[in-house]
Computed example of a mutant assay.
Amino acid sequence: MTLLAATRSEYAKQFSTAGWWVLGIVLVVYVAFTAGALAFVFGGVASGRLTGANGPAVSTDGIPALVYSSATAVGYVFPLLIGTLMVTTEFRHKTLTPTLLATPRRGVVLVGKFAVGILVGVLYGILGSAAAVAAGAGVLTIFDIDPALGSVDTWTLVGRMLVAFALWALVGIGVGTVVRNQVAAIVIVLAVTLFVEPIVRTIGGLVEGFGDVVTWFPSAASDALVGQTIFGAMGTGAGGQLEWWAGGLVLLGYAVVFLVIGLFTTWRRDVD
């Protein structure tokens, strides 16, 4: 019963504020723009209707999946952020004090956050996938390319993206338990996702032997889980890719590692 109460409390805290839907709107706009742009470039090159373009050679059959997978390829930062904010906001606004007074077992509080984090991650996955499919399919039809909306592979891809979004939310919760300062946590998340990982993964595709290391990076594991990667299509991906199930386990492993570190360090400290 305590776990149920903790989950209900977390659900109320998460969905009674504007933060989740504001990030959701930004996610939809960002993913839709990216998917539309990719569909325009790859579709235009493949169809030969984008004159003067010298892009990567991508088969027409593989373009829809590549475009749709941009939901996680660029949108994973949003569930990661919301998961981080689910923890750091409690420290910043001192709401963790009444939470722990009502539920003294801190592990139960974290499990409640994990349950709601999965829900929010799946919700973001639905929003991101819908934006990518709608925008991407719309642009692809302009170039007379089959958007593959009736393909089982397309909806399998979407299902894996939902799992990836949920796992990224859990990783964010883990990060939040380790870095309790909200500003620092947000800066770290944005710096790693927008600069560090893309640069290092690009280098991994160019430096022999380094690609095998990059394969185990969180974003690379996420791409493996989904089954597609923009890095690979652009010729700058790592040398190999994990199996989809292994990619999911690696991403879950990051969440667990961060959580364990947080449990034995920050999460045990007294609340300021």
Rank of each mutant, 00 (worst) to 15 (best):
V226H: 03
I261F: 13
W21D: 03
V120H: 08
F143H: 06
V179S: 09
V31D: 01
A130P: 01
G62R: 03
T141F: 08
V74D: 03
V120D: 04
Q182N: 11
G247D: 07
W168G: 14
S47P: 05
T88M: 01
G235E: 07
L66M: 07
T193N: 10
T97S: 15
L85H: 05
S9I: 06
A246D: 07
E10N: 10
L119R: 02
I25P: 13
W245C: 15
L252E: 02
V187F: 12
R269I: 07
G227M: 10
P64H: 05
E197W: 12
V41Y: 14
G36D: 05
T103V: 15
F217M: 11
V74H: 06
F91C: 10
L140R: 08
I82M: 15
T236H: 14
L4N: 07
M1I: 08
L3T: 00
G107A: 15
L167A: 02
F40I: 09
V116A: 14
F231Q: 05
G205Q: 07
L123D: 10
F264V: 14
A32K: 01
A5M: 08
T95Q: 05
A233H: 09
G36M: 10
G174P: 06
A6I: 00
T202I: 14
W155Y: 04
F231T: 05
V226C: 11
A134N: 06
G107V: 09
A71E: 05
Y68D: 05
V163T: 04
A131M: 02
L110M: 10
R180Y: 09
W267S: 15
V158A: 10
T17C: 13
P147C: 07
L140V: 04
L23G: 06
T34D: 11
G174K: 01
G262E: 03
I203L: 15
I126W: 02
Q241W: 07
I230D: 09
W155G: 12
G211W: 06
I188N: 08
F40P: 13
V74F: 05
V256P: 08
K113Y: 07
T229D: 08
T51W: 14
A132F: 02
L96P: 11
Y124T: 09
V28H: 03
G43S: 04
E10A: 02
V67G: 03
Q182L: 13
Q182C: 14
I118N: 01
K113T: 02
A73T: 04
